[in-house]
């Protein structure tokens, strides 16, 4: 669990305390782990295989957002943020194993151990800021394309 971005900075005792609400699941290629707008009841850590995160533009267009393919990579962080709804769909791209960390167990542990909660939420904020930067960069690229097309 140490390699997950949310858990960076936690010591062995703190990490051990987090394992109470976890379970391993096997996933097959093509299997949907969760869908956009569904309630986020857990966060996930890849053990093996690959998972793609996508977002729906409309009923016909689905955009690729990222690929989770390195063991220890995490996804489903919406579980830690109200309103606890997934903002993306996670679909298994190649069969593997995933560690499921139940939201309620994690939140309970974090509320009982303030220092753990602080570290996890700080890591989450850092991660979300990097995602925000990526989204802004993407928006700038579209904006530049649009401006050039107006000027042409």
């Amino acid at each position: 669990m140490r390699s997950g971005y949310l858990f960076r900075g936690l010591n062995d005792r703190q990490l051990e305390g987090l394992t109470a609400g976890t379970k391993n699941i096997e996933v097959d290629s093509g299997e949907v782990i969760y869908r956009e707008r569904e309630e986020a009841e857990a966060i996930y850590m890849l053990s093996s295989g690959a998972v793609e995160l996508v977002t729906s533009v409309n009923n016909h267009i689905e955009l690729p957002v990222s690929i989770i393919r390195n063991p220890g990579e995490m996804f489903g962080s919406s579980a830690l943020i109200e309103p606890h709804l997934h903002t993306l769909t996670a679909r298994c791209q190649s069969a593997g194993n995933i560690l499921v960390i139940e939201r309620r167990a994690l939140q309970e542990y974090m509320s009982e151990h303030d220092e753990v909660g602080l570290i996890i939420m700080t890591n989450l904020a850092t991660y979300l800021l990097s995602r925000l930067k990526e989204s802004r960069q993407e928006l700038k690229i579209h904006f530049k394309t649009l401006l050039r097309s107006f000027r042409a």
Partner: peptide, 9 residues
């Protein structure tokens, strides 16, 4: 892997 940002590029 080509994500939505890559598609924008």
């Amino acid at each position: 892997y080509i994500n939505s940002g890559g598609i924008a590029v």
